[in-house]
Simulated assay, not measured.
Amino acid sequence: MNIGVFLSAADLGEQYTVPAKEFGRLMGEGGHSLVWGGSESGLMKVVADAVQASGGRLIGVSVEFLHDVARKDADEMVIARDLAHRKAELLQRSDAIVVMVGGTGTLDEATEILELKKHGMHRKPVVVLNSAGFYDGLEQQFRRMESEGFLPLPLADLVHFADDGAAALAYLQEQV
């Protein structure tokens, strides 16, 4: 399976790097490919290193203004013209999506993917990997959106929250 992963390119603490390494290792051992932003820095590098070290493939989708930090030894690297094209490429090349910890860029990617799914533009499973409770507030907000009628479909049909990489991968394998 080609698993698209949206996540931070920032250098982060062990509460985020340890789960990222574990998820990358599980992906690689399972024979899956990582489809990601292609960066050779921060958490993006941590996941890519773990996938590659455990036998998985790397499919990067960088963007022109970040091409200088793109991973040189990826199995495949696409350079998109802008961030919108990058998001479209990441979605197109992925069988499933995992959202890991990140900042505004990750949140932008996640909400666009979910909005497209809400409108039936794709049916790919989406998992939020809630490492160290990072997305507890987001999950609470989504539950409120559902309970107050803001979502036209059940939350469980839109996104799944997982506390660890094994649970995230198990959910994806059930869905794909």
Rank of each mutant, 00 (worst) to 15 (best):
V61R: 00
L169W: 10
Q173W: 01
V176K: 09
F134G: 09
P152N: 14
L151E: 11
P152C: 05
S41L: 14
E109A: 14
G24D: 01
D82I: 03
V98N: 10
V101M: 11
V99R: 07
P19C: 08
F161W: 07
Q140S: 13
Y171V: 04
V176N: 13
L129D: 03
A166P: 01
Q92S: 13
L34N: 10
M121D: 10
V51S: 00
R143D: 03
H67Y: 03
S62F: 02
V159K: 15
F134M: 13
L138S: 08
D163N: 15
D136A: 11
G56Q: 05
I97T: 03
I59S: 01
L155K: 09
L153C: 14
G4D: 08
A84K: 08
L83A: 05
M100E: 04
L58H: 02
G13Y: 01
V176D: 03
A9F: 11
D163G: 15
G105H: 07
V128N: 04
L138P: 06
E112C: 09
F65V: 11
F65I: 09
D49K: 12
G149T: 04
V176C: 15
S39Q: 11
Y171Q: 12
G60F: 00
K118L: 15
E14S: 14
G55I: 01
A166R: 15
D95G: 15
H160T: 13
G42K: 13
K45C: 02
A53L: 09
E40H: 09
K21S: 13
L34G: 09
D68W: 08
G4I: 05
K117H: 09
S33E: 00
L114C: 07
A162V: 05
L83C: 00
L116I: 01
L158Y: 14
L138I: 08
D163L: 12
A170C: 07
I79D: 05
E139S: 07
K45T: 01
K21L: 05
G37D: 06
G37A: 05
R93M: 04
L34W: 05
P125Y: 07
S62I: 04
E174F: 02
V99E: 07
E22Q: 14
A110G: 06
A53N: 07
E148A: 03
D163R: 15
R57Y: 00
H122Q: 13
A166C: 03
S33P: 00
V159I: 14
H122P: 13
K118G: 03
G165R: 10
